[in-house]
Design a protein around this nucleic acid. Sequence first.
DNA 1: CAATACACTTCCAAAATACGGAAACGCACC
DNA 2: GGTGCGTTTCCGTATTTTGGAAGTGTATTG
Lengths: 248, 248
Amino acid sequence: MRKPRPVQPDQSLDSASDSGGSEGNVRAVDRALVILNAFREEDGALPLVEVARRAGLHLTTALRLLGTLESHGFVQRLAVGGYRLGPTLLLLGDRFRRSLRLEDHVMPALERLRAESRESATFFVREGDHRRCVFRLDSPQLVRDHAHVGEVQPLGIGAHGRSLIALDAPAGQRPRLPIVTRGERLREIAAIAAPVLDAAGGVAGSVGISVPLYRFDAAAEALCVPLVMREAVAITRALGGDPAAILN
Amino acid sequence: MRKPRPVQPDQSLDSASDSGGSEGNVRAVDRALVILNAFREEDGALPLVEVARRAGLHLTTALRLLGTLESHGFVQRLAVGGYRLGPTLLLLGDRFRRSLRLEDHVMPALERLRAESRESATFFVREGDHRRCVFRLDSPQLVRDHAHVGEVQPLGIGAHGRSLIALDAPAGQRPRLPIVTRGERLREIAAIAAPVLDAAGGVAGSVGISVPLYRFDAAAEALCVPLVMREAVAITRALGGDPAAILN
DNA sequence: CAATACACTTCCAAAATACGGAAACGCACC
DNA sequence: GGTGCGTTTCCGTATTTTGGAAGTGTATTG
């Protein structure tokens, strides 16, 4: 169990608790990271009290932790008062992405997809039993879905969610690629996605397009399906993978 | 060598060494953040020993800290062994960027710049006495400069470095906009940049194009200069700023 | 203008926490 | 089977973090 209260009598069930475990974790660090996760994009800048409240920390503690985070650029303290996330995160986030060594091949593919379909193009990677959006280019059109790089979504549902596990199925029972869904995970969105393989034969990720459902008629589908397959193959080739496996 | 001295005879003047200060910082957190900064993109995965060495930490300490970082997704432990940066950084980095509330206006502008110039387009924001690359689109051409989102560069040098402080000068002595440099910060790169203003009249950032010097002839300059000015004005307008100040 | 409320900051003693030495473990390579 | 290297567990200690309380400053109210 996590024990939030030091001396306190008992109970409580709130406070921290969200993400990680508490097993063998360095408490101060744990709390600092909880603070970082307390920032949601909607809020411009959070006052100390609010940060402390969200993280379930004593004011003094939050203040000290924020000070340390600030000195490394993980949060910024605004002149007017209040804190927000800091620029070091931008640097590290981009470093993480580059460590995947996908950017050079994936971004051009997404650019082609977006240019030719005029819809949003996205690339997911599997992360345990979830998937994470790692690259994304928004549709140039006004009406589009709104998704963000970094977001986590479930596996098994949605075009990408199924595409990432499509090749896990026994050889005979694999779904037809690309996966096409209509309003499956998000009611008003259709999506087309196909897996991408690396040199080791593993699934490196999933490329695809998402389209507002009302715009996804037969013509749009006929346009998008081959586009997605073409780029899935292109990325797979670029990574040294064997396109045969997705061309079944 | 950095040797903090556990038992500490006296004084201090301390260790800390690299980044932040050590004044009033929570040590465990401080160290954890130093660990994150120890990851450079070049290295795929670092073994524990290497992380500990770079961060100047005892092996045991690094192990514990990495464990905590991992449980929040700030680092990943690869099956084969070794650590690398984790996906949570992607999420937070993007959140930081969105908190600037520039994306909607800046990215389309960069896309137009790149499309019309076929060169790399970049957006910097000022950060104290430095500047940070916040948005960037790479040139579609093979030969181009290599810069990354998140990187910090000096103020006062380079086209963006000067553009960001151009309006700080007294009204009569302001440099002509856009700023055009040839091989100033990077020997083989030319750049064109202009500041962008927000509704408060402050400098929100700097937009521009960078071009390999050998390609930057009179024709290229004649093409790029008006493009950059056009987009600087467009972003300024979108942010509610007054374009007059950059058009003088 | 006094009085109250609220956000933030400083101080400090207590103790819980993180530290790091040592030693065990696992593995590859001799 | 032995040696070297990277990793992990264990554990006593004292360093570090903690959070109560009180102080400062600014806004809000009566």
